[in-house]
Design a protein around this nucleic acid. Sequence first.
DNA 1: ATGAAAGCGCTAACAT
DNA 2: ATGTTAGCGCTTTCAT
Lengths: 333, 333
Amino acid sequence: MSPSDRSLTMDDVAREAGVSRSLVSIAFRGVKGVSPEMRQHIFDVADRLGYRPNVVASRLASKNVVTIGVFLLDLYNAIFADIYEGVRSVLTDQNQHVVLAIGSAGGERDTEALDNLLRARANVVIAAGLMLPDDAIQGLSRMAPIVSTARAIPGIDSAFSDDVHGATQAVEHLFSLGHERVAHLASPRRQGYMGRRAGYEAAMSERGLRPLVVEVEYTQTSAAKEASRLLDLDEPPTAIFANNDMAALGVMDALYSRGLRPGEDLSIVGYDNTQIAHLPAVSLTSVDLHAVSLGISAAQLALQRLANPYRDTQQISSRPELVVRRSTRPLTS
Amino acid sequence: MSPSDRSLTMDDVAREAGVSRSLVSIAFRGVKGVSPEMRQHIFDVADRLGYRPNVVASRLASKNVVTIGVFLLDLYNAIFADIYEGVRSVLTDQNQHVVLAIGSAGGERDTEALDNLLRARANVVIAAGLMLPDDAIQGLSRMAPIVSTARAIPGIDSAFSDDVHGATQAVEHLFSLGHERVAHLASPRRQGYMGRRAGYEAAMSERGLRPLVVEVEYTQTSAAKEASRLLDLDEPPTAIFANNDMAALGVMDALYSRGLRPGEDLSIVGYDNTQIAHLPAVSLTSVDLHAVSLGISAAQLALQRLANPYRDTQQISSRPELVVRRSTRPLTS
DNA sequence: ATGAAAGCGCTAACAT
DNA sequence: ATGTTAGCGCTTTCAT
């Protein structure tokens, strides 16, 4: 049980195997320059000793080991689990070292987390859900190229979903059910996250209806409070389009707490189509932005950027898809 | 837009500031040995240049920078977000470098993820939700001390919740509502995760009832399928205790798909008390294991282990708490 | 308070 | 195929 104060080095393996350190290095990197028998012998010795290469040292020494930083805004939102899953599925190469940094829902830790990735000398950073303004991100991208996911940033490689389109689909779905008094719970005004609101407003205006937008924080309770306020209006909305599923769940809370039922008494549309929306008990109509695919695209953009630092930045836009469930019903009045 | 091929080093800053590299190092590490004016000057120059210390190099060079590895089984389960949050809240020191590794729900990536942490030369590893057998973990702990969270492992620092107790509470709650035909959806037989099943079986036996255990995979659909099978029995259970919330949601799925209602037609208890359980639409009775606190305890254990590698391993057990909601009702028949 | 120099564990020419 | 040697960008004695 007594921990060894020093972990094994390549020299230990080399000595034990009766070869030079370089040969051990060659064997472990899997490059050519070592006979198959010797290679096996070195591995045997290393295994017996319990040696593991020190990536800290190898990253410092090598220009060939690339470090890919991944920023995820918030572990509580399953959308980032999806994005990570997509990213991971692409990044499987041996000499790709992935380092993670986690932020927090409000964006308070964006700078700190990105800073950690830069200090870890990430050669490229895949960022999902950054809250920082465009220019701050553009500035940071001079230190290391950044690939933005789930948000389009001018001049930065971006893999994103067309939020305007998604919002339009959501609102038009409500129109098709006969709803006209459709309110929107919007995210706080932040650069990069105005598409859903814009799509809503455009769709309403186009139909000659007056948009009713209420800003909510990134919490369920905030959404519940504002929804409650909307329900108290003289002419309350018959449908609410929420900027994400969490907010939509807040709306449901507000309904339940006054004995009303989602779908029946108020139609609700969410956004992100997280697992919760699927639950039969919840059955929330929601816009799916295919987060796993976004992660895949982002990882591919990152690899392309590494391969060619000077190519033009790419913007990959994908189409979100409305998934209709029981939280939206025809207007009956 | 043209990326600089080489990032700045301390030498660049030193040269620009007209001092030696050592002095810049002293300034950045915040140790004494530099005058306040010089310190400020160095920072000014570094800021102007956009220099960030290279943690890869500093970790290699220094014995004082400690690296703390954190393993999280699965980003889709919010319980690990809680644990991470707890860990993070404790680990705020400047010369603590946190590195993350993510596994996958079934445990398929445990070894790979731990290996990455060891290759990154973590001085201690905080592991949440490891699926590996005890002896494998004990073996790895010779490479770097491991702190286990949400699972007790003999001979390994562990911060865990008393699953037997939690399960007992859950089942006795059902008894108090009049239920006697109580079934259990158990996790796959795995060392370290038998407490909930054991608590259930003991509680049933003590009351003179025959335990009915069905093993399910870590997916909602698997739970739904097995629950469905239980409902088809000649004498179906009147209550189901699921080994976690996800499985409980699967049970709800099974009910909904045959037009039955949770609580009314079948009482359901989950485990973990994740956010989903709170939702009014779901309102799932569940056992809360206070995951944030577990994360905090684990981080503290890790720091203590670093401070004293030779002290006896600690086992910190905490009491889970049953949270009763509408998915459990008195038996009416 | 500041600088010079050795070394952390590896990689990558360059020799042999 | 294998060994020698000079770094990678820092930290850390030890001088001054």
